[in-house]
Write a protein that binds this DNA or RNA. Structure first.
Lengths: 117, 117
DNA sequence: ACTCCAGATCGACAGTCATCTATATACATA
DNA sequence: TATGTATATAGATGACTGTCGATCTGGAGT
């Protein structure tokens, strides 16, 4: 599961041929890859991606009761998606009385965003 | 599963209170969300993310035989990850004799990248 | 023709996922 | 205190995931 930095080619190539230029190592190390993949995975569902889109474009925090009617899924399923985003470190929430307010954690998408561009 | 554009609030709020500003709709529509989530999901595994990193930073196409020793997973598992990236439209491959060469499809990450920044 | 090799596919398995209904929790209002 | 409301949790279910070893495929070299 970790990058093998001691790599030396073991396989014999057909005589006089090379398949390509010498090995390239990932610039992104395992730690970074795990962090970014966790965020990417959290965004890997259309509903969660739209949720993040709404939260991001809305200044401030959005009440769950405003989110539920936007999607044709049950309230518990929405709650599950929000929990997933929170576990991945993408959003956080705050309770005020009956209502819960969610918001995108500033900078949570920065590393992935930077790597992608 | 689709966005409910006909939404009007049904739930009664406690008298004289509002939970937050009026509803915000996603700027990203369902189609876009599905496309971008598919790419994000493909990047949602550390090994696949590192694979894309290697392929992206290497000019031209990289032979699978160079990729196998970089990761501590079996050759069939690597093949599975590459297939997953191909299905998601992130990479494509080309065969030359015994070897298979993979490369990131130009622009495949553009939509997600743009949305993230 | 036979063997060898790179890579893909198959079949299995344990784990996770998205979804639902039903229920619990915790705060508000009367 | 009793009732209602917003959100979270529990439990179930069917689908999918990452991984492996074993096998298949098809081109290369002898």
């Amino acid at each position: 599961m970790t990058v093998d930095l001691e790599f030396t080619p073991k396989q014999k190539r057909p005589a006089g041929q090379r398949c390509c230029d010498p090995v390239v190592y990932p610039d992104v190390d395992r730690e970074q890859a795990i962090r970014m993949a966790e965020v990417a995975k959290a965004l890997g569902d259309p509903i969660r991606l739209q949720l993040v889109d709404v939260l991001r474009k809305h200044a401030g925090k959005v009440c769950v009761c405003e989110l539920v009617p936007l999607f044709e899924i049950s309230q518990p399923t929405l709650s599950h998606h929000l929990a997933k985003l929170r576990t991945a470190g993408v959003v956080d929430s705050e309770r005020r009385g009956l209502w819960a307010y969610y918001y995108v954690i500033p900078g949570a998408l920065a590393e992935l965003s930077a790597w992608l561009s």
